[in-house]
Amino acid sequence: MLQVKDLHKSFKTGDGNVNAIDGVSFSVPDGQFASIIGKSGSGKSTLLSLLGALDKPTSGSIVVGEKDIVKLHDHTLIKYRCEKIGFVFQNYNLVPNLSAIENVVLPMEFAGVSKTKRLVRAKELLNQVGLEGGKQNRKPGRLSGGEQQRVAIARALANHPSLILADEPTGNLDNQTGKLIFDLLHNLSRTEKTTIVVVTHDLDIAGKTDVTFRLSDGKLVKNGAK
């Protein structure tokens, strides 16, 4: 279960304090596929950063499983990110000089998984997301956008995370590929029993998720399961 309670995040700017996240509270049960929608600047990416322990909130709590990640020390947060969170980015953010399989291996290496085990797991994941054969040894530059995003999803799943956070995962893809990627994420949330939170502009995609949250000016204006 992902539980967010009265979350606040403010930034200091030249014009004073800006409340990027202003008292957000919601929860997502394990294995559910949730989406966060909202206009640009509504605080979606900031919320995702807070959920992914990439940034610290000004106040509030984020409980993943039974741990309040807000209270974790920096060193523990790295371990938490490594083992419990998977990230999927709009721009894929694969390491360009590593092959697809090496990119998937990377989080497992950081988690201390043995070389043999991580190679086997990486191959399995790439096969699972539909990237097979010689493509697994290609560098990102020689893969299409859809294929790169598949690699990114495989990388996000590498350490069996409790939570996958995806920031506009279909934003750079054509409709057809975007739909395939969404279906892939949706199926994974079922088969891997992983909670997935997706930030998106695409209302069609948001409409297909288990739960959708709408953010406006850092506040949750619509909160509800379907």
């Binding site: 992914g52 990439l54 060193h75 790295i78 371990k79 990110r81 490594c82 083992e83 990230f87 980015f89 953010n93 390491v95 360009p96 990377l106 989080p107 950081f110 988690a111 990388r155 350490n159």
Partner: peptide, 13 residues
Amino acid sequence: RREIGVMKAIGSS
């Protein structure tokens, strides 16, 4: 810089 950020995000100390 972005690559460093990504590496840190996916668990690199």
